[in-house]
């Protein structure tokens, strides 16, 4: 060991918490959610998650090389983007489309802005928004959870050839012999047919939906673990949930037959995943504590408004993207009051 005196500038101590540690923890927190999604939907989702993650990391590597930023793969943020993206897609989503989503998410959503820390929006959602527009049918084609053969056969649409549209899967679904299958998510059932599925099912995830959006309880637990370890700002998910529940409440009180209950709003669709893992993305959310609350409330309120009154079934994604865009503005409005700014000398 070389000897000699060292000179550093103060502070000479440093908290042992770094970006890669935070990112690794988020990946760790996403693993149970991913595992449950695979258990629910089988091999197709496993391939889907692997595809989005590998493509996201490869894209990150490529752009870091092109722009000479060095190896940015080691910060794990691309893995998060890949996993999150995979979890927001329908289980039988064609893999080639998933690869496009991952590439677009990292390339347009992140690399274009200058990489980690400079992106305005959540890259996973940018990717998802792109394929939502590009492949509107595939992204709303749902398959039932717990199909009997899910670990031995793929959902037919998974292996669609690149640049081909997926085969319709109605026959395959019919072959599974599930009576009540309507091909709709709980959100759609509620919205268009006013059928509210039992809360227990929605909460524990034994229902149709995107790969990882379906078990509210699991997402909640994993998110709480991260918040407890101070790896995410608890204010954001709490504000999102509060905003959503409070917006849904008056409508439900007015007409419980037509409008969903606040509990249903919280547990269905991508709200949990969005609140805990996407809205809380540090880079794209405000830096101030008050800003975080305003941002979270905004997302919650907007999500419910889109769900109830928009043409779309699910609003979380657009609500978060819009809030991301407003993030810097919200930060600007909510600058903390500098010490001594309001104080006057006493005579």
């Amino acid at each position: 060991m070389a000897k000699g005196i060292e000179i550093r500038t103060s502070p000479h101590l440093k908290k042992v918490l770094t970006v890669d540690q935070i990112m690794r923890s988020v990946v760790l927190a996403l693993l149970p959610v991913s595992a449950f999604a695979v258990y629910q939907f089988g091999l197709s989702v496993l391939l889907l998650l692997i595809t989005t993650t590998v493509v996201a990391v490869a894209t990150e590597w490529l752009f870091a090389r092109l722009s000479g930023r060095g190896n940015t793969v080691a910060d794990w943020s691309a893995v998060i983007t890949g996993l999150l993206l995979g979890l927001t897609l329908p289980p039988g989503f064609p893999l080639w489309m998933a690869a496009v989503a991952a590439f677009v998410g990292i390339a347009l959503g992140k690399a274009l802005f200058g990489g980690l820390g400079y992106n305005v929006m959540n890259p996973a959602l940018v990717g998802r928004a792109f394929v939502q527009a590009a492949f509107p049918v595939a992204i709303t084609t749902w398959t039932p959870a717990f199909a009997p053969e899910r670990f031995s056969e793929l959902i037919p649409s998974t292996l669609t050839l690149p640049f081909m549209q997926p085969v319709p899967i109605d026959d395959w679904v019919a072959g599974l012999g599930l009576d009540a299958w309507s091909g709709a998510t709980p959100l759609a059932l509620q919205k268009f047919q006013q059928i509210e599925l039992p809360l227990g099912e929605v909460f524990s995830g034994t229902i149709a939906g995107s790969a990882g959006e379906t078990s509210a309880i699991l997402i909640l637990v994993c998110g709480l673990w991260l918040a407890w370890r101070r790896m995410l700002d608890w204010r954001i998910p709490v504000a999102v949930m509060a905003g959503a529940a409070l917006t849904a409440l008056p409508f439900w009180l007015l007409d419980p037959a037509l409008y969903p209950s606040p509990w249903f709003v919280l547990c269905s669709g991508g709200l949990m995943l969005g609140a805990w893992f996407m809205a809380s993305d540090m880079v794209a959310s405000p830096v101030t504590a008050r800003g975080a609350i305003i941002y979270g409330l905004f997302i919650g309120v907007l999500t419910v408004i889109i769900r109830l009154f928009g043409g779309l079934v699910e609003g979380v994604m657009y609500a978060i993207l819009l809030a991301n865009a407003l993030g810097p503005l919200i930060s600007g409005w909510t600058q903390p009051r500098v010490y001594g700014a309001g104080s006057r000398p006493k005579a």
Partner: peptide
Amino acid sequence: LDLAERKVYPCIKCGACVEACPISLN
């Protein structure tokens, strides 16, 4: 010191510094 000599990443806007500053700067 080696522990403190870590890789510098871009600011990830985590807000930890804003939460820490006793003068409430940004």
